[in-house]
Design a protein around this nucleic acid. Structure first.
Lengths: 128, 128
DNA sequence: CTTGAAATCAATAATAATTCTCATTACTGA
DNA sequence: TCAGTAATGAGAATTATTATTGATTTCAAG
């Protein structure tokens, strides 16, 4: 892995992503940190999110309404995406689908990195 | 459902999407049909794909490298996405995860429309 | 058939998320 | 402190997708 200098803004970006379960967009992170770091650039947020992804510190879970949603929780778990309010909500995934990994590796010769369960629908609030 | 005039190009677009299991992009469909319909416009491909989606005739399965991938097969099934060659390959999903639907509807009050199982990794060919 | 309303089309402009460029600034080891 | 490398900000460039527009085609009633 490439050597990396310390950067206060990078730390803040990672902390912000990890501080929420809302699966935010890069834009949200930027808006949140602009108060503390008025000279922060959106490009810096995108760049560091890319680096965190490379390092496996965060992951992207879906593209919702044209925007990538990121997750500071890299443990395997499922997501519910509301088509109305665009919320991305963690769900407990059933464990069975994780068998998919060994099944695919043995029968198909694929190397599995990640199993993603995503459920689309309408959330409780939007149903009212 | 809204009444819709006949359109030869629309038929061709749907047929092309249904003719492949490669989960193509709009651009691919456009390139494939340009030979037969030299005056076809990329906008027409996008517009009709949107209409097919509204009518439930096709669906989008993922955004890979910034491009939406479409599927003419709307029956629930999983997908393997190779991070190297970007191939999107059908996989037999285990049926257990479909229980997710009733689980979420009963315990969380969500209305489920679709359950999506996506596996990321490296395909057989790219592993060599 | 004819005709007119509605649907469709190609072309192109507009939008918007993300990536790239590069001059400048910050960090780090010596 | 200083040199070398890495990170940043500002904004331009890229690119997939969507919207607009004005002309053309389809359809069905008369």
């Amino acid at each position: 892995m490439k050597t990396r200098n310390y950067s206060q803004k990078r730390e803040a970006i990672l902390a912000k992503v990890r501080s929420t379960k809302s699966h935010p967009t890069a834009e949200w992170v930027y808006q949140e940190l602009k108060g503390t770091y008025p000279d922060l650039s959106l490009g810096t947020v995108y760049r560091n999110i890319g680096l965190f992804k490379d390092d496996g510190l965060i992951c992207t879970v879906a593209t919702v309404a044209g925007q990538e949603r990121i997750d500071g929780n890299v443990e395997p778990h499922g997501h519910f995406i509301c088509r109305t309010c665009r919320a991305v909500i963690d769900i407990d995934a059933p464990t069975e689908h994780l068998e998919m990994e060994s099944y695919l590796e043995k029968s198909q010769g694929f190397q599995v990195e990640r199993v993603d369960l995503t459920v689309y629908g309408t959330c409780k609030t939007c149903l009212k």
